[in-house]
C-alpha cells in the first residue's frame, strides 16, 4: 500500500486488515521501489502521485526488476476512469485496475483478485 498521505494509509489498512490481509504501507516512491524489489507482495495499491516519483514510474521499475510478478491497482484523486494515461497503463499491462478516490469499501475489495 503506497500513499504519501498517512490518513489514506490508515483507511486502507483498516479495510484490508478487517478482511484478514497483512498490509505493509510505505509513504514514498523510493521506499516502494525498495520494498517491491526485495519482497513478494500479493497485491499493490499504488497512489498515482507521490512526492518524489510518479506512481506509474514506481510500477515500471518494479516490473523491470522482477518481471511479471507484481499486480498493481492504481489509486488516485488526480486521474479519472477513462483518463488516457490510465487506459494506456492498463493496455501496457503495467496495472490491472484503477480506483478513483474517494471509493467505497466494496470498490476497494472488489479490486482485489478473488483468488
Amino acid at each position: 500500500m503506497v500513499d504519501d498521505e498517512p490518513d489514506m494509509c490508515w483507511v486502507m489498512e483498516c479495510i484490508l486488515r478487517s478482511k484478514g490481509y497483512e498490509v505493509v504501507t510505505v509513504l514514498s516512491g523510493e521506499e516502494a521501489c525498495y520494498q517491491l524489489a526485495n519482497r513478494d507482495f500479493f497485491f499493490v495499491f499504488m497512489d498515482a502521485k507521490l512526492p518524489d516519483m510518479d506512481g506509474l514510474e514506481v510500477v515500471r521499475r518494479a516490473h523491470a526488476a522482477r518481471p511479471g510478478i507484481v499486480r498493481v491497482v492504481l489509486v488516485s484523486g488526480y486521474h479519472y476512469h477513462d483518463d488516457p494515461v490510465i487506459r494506456q497503463a492498463i493496455n501496457e499491462n503495467l496495472i490491472c485496475g484503477f480506483l478513483a478516490k474517494p471509493f467505497t469499501h466494496s470498490d476497494l475489495l472488489n479490486a482485489l483478485p478473488s483468488s
Binding site: D7, W10, G77, Y78
Partner: peptide, 21 residues
C-alpha cells in the same frame, strides 16, 4: 485544477471511508 483535485479528493476519500466504518 489538477493539484486541487488531488489534494481535495484525498481528504474526501478518508472521510468517505471513515463514514462507511
Amino acid at each position: 485544477a489538477g493539484g486541487i483535485a488531488h489534494e481535495i479528493r484525498n481528504p474526501l476519500a478518508v472521510c468517505y471511508s471513515a463514514a462507511e466504518f
